[in-house]
Design a protein around this nucleic acid. Structure first.
Length: 414
DNA sequence: TCTGGGGTCCTAGGACCC
DNA sequence: TCTGGGGTCCTAGGACCC
């Protein structure tokens, strides 16, 4: 049996946890660059604010209805997530952190009564210790546990699928789009074939499903039938790729500014890479203008590196060459990014005969850099190439304090 | 004026091999 | 006249997730 623990309206709930004045108020949290809505309190949902709505389109309505607005504050959410996951680790034998606000637990071996009891304990403990409300779904497969958690959300609390009748009832009431693994495209394609609910889908035969939905879709259907195909992954493999990309706060026209932004993302991506104790063999740099306007231009350059590296200056050289090669004058660029992939574990890299091993001084230099920025704050030491003004950096006009991760932002009560 | 960021997996098609 | 079968690797693109 699996449980899925899902934090309700996670980012909105995090904002509320530290600011009681937001309780019971309609509240939305915006994406990076204050672009669009990525979290809504129940009250905001009831007012009809759509997920993903561009902020500039709903601005007037937000003001008129007195809806509270926050820029996203990932330091805060990341820290709250850690606390929630720590609680689950105490309560369950093994957990898989599935996303910032969700985790699966393997609860094999418990009786029905014990399952429900544990689900309630998880929910109550998390609420009490962090202030975050959750929904807990319990079932034989992960896909069904997901479905159960959606039901739990409606009913407020814990929902378990413990027998066949329950499972069938739920599938019957479940529109395709609600199924974990079925997105907009599959929904449309299946509806054209006369399938509208999860119950309709599980009645089709395997060959038909395989053809229509590929092997992943077939797995989903088996899971809906109660046959586990997706195991708990409590030791996730290390990442296959690392991306750092951002929209700009304002359009970027010059190669100088574009280079600065890309250099900034390279240093961030390289930090993440070293944090994973990996080196990369592949660097991809990309930038483009607004897809909502023409003419549209997208530049991209990819490099297979001669030797695996985690050394920021080396990565910067390639990325800057990519910018020079692909930049086009007169384009209003709105976004850029860096992707690293094809990793090897640090210390296990295969060298070629003609190559010198990595320079120890380079490693020491990166260690110092990372240490200083960890100890004294993110931007203490940085590459001049990444710019000092950073006029392109994103907008965050409604940001809340980093209550739990920055000493100067800790709440005062008195 | 203003439309997020970071991932994974699968498939199709081309190049190439024997 | 008759022009196979099986495989790998790579990339681009599509689809999904939160």
């Amino acid at each position: 049996m699996y449980a899925l623990i899902d934090c309700n309206n996670f980012y909105a709930s995090c904002e509320r946890a530290f600011n009681p004045a937001l309780k019971l108020k309609p509240l939305v949290v915006l994406s990076n660059n204050d672009g669009c809505v990525i979290a809504r309190s129940d009250e905001a949902k009831q007012l009809g604010i759509a997920m993903g709505a561009p902020y500039f389109k709903i601005k007037a309505e937000v003001a008129a209805r007195g809806i509270e607005v926050r820029s996203s504050n990932y330091e805060l959410y990341g820290d709250m997530s850690r606390r929630v996951m720590d609680i689950l680790r105490r309560l369950a034998p093994s957990i898989e952190i599935y996303s910032i606000d969700e985790a699966f637990c393997d609860l094999t071996g418990l009786s029905s009564a014990a399952l429900l009891e544990l689900g309630r304990t998880m929910r109550e403990t998390i609420l009490q210790w962090t202030g975050i409300p959750t929904s807990v779904g319990i079932a034989r497969t992960k896909t069904l546990a997901k479905a159960a958690s959606k039901q739990a959300k409606l009913m407020g609390g814990v929902f378990a699928i413990l027998d066949e009748r329950e499972r069938e009832r739920l599938l019957q009431a479940m529109p395709l789009r609600r199924v974990w693994g079925i997105g907009r495209r599959l929904e449309t394609s299946l509806e054209n074939a006369g399938i509208f609910t999860a119950a309709d889908l599980v009645r089709k035969d395997d060959a038909w499903i395989r053809r229509r939905m590929s092997i992943t879709g077939l797995r989903t259907v088996h899971e809906l039938r109660g046959i586990p195909c997706i195991d708990l992954d409590d030791q996730p493999a290390s990442k296959l790729s690392i991306t750092t990309s951002r929209m700009f706060g304002h359009p970027v026209h010059t190669i100088e500014e574009l280079s600065q932004a890309v250099a900034h993302y390279v240093t961030r991506a390289a930090e993440k890479l070293r944090g994973e104790k990996r080196k990369t063999r592949y660097l991809d740099v990309f930038f483009h203008s607004s897809p909502f306007k023409s003419p549209y231009h997208a530049g991209r350059a990819a490099y297979a590196l001669p030797a695996p590296t985690d050394f920021t200056p080396t990565l910067l050289q390639y990325a800057m060459a990519g910018v020079r090669a692909q930049y086009r004058e007169g384009v209003a660029y709105t976004k850029a990014g860096i992707m690293l992939s094809d990793f090897v574990a640090r210390g296990e890299e295969q060298l070629s005969l003609l190559q010198a091993p990595a320079d120890e001084r380079e490693e020491t230099m990166m260690e110092m850099l990372d240490y200083i920025n960890r100890r004294w704050g993110k931007h203490t030491m940085f590459y001049a190439g990444a710019g000092v003004q950073q006029g392109w950096s994103m907008k965050r006009n409604f940001r809340s304090p980093s209550y739990s991760t920055r000493l100067t932002d800790v709440l005062e009560i008195g």
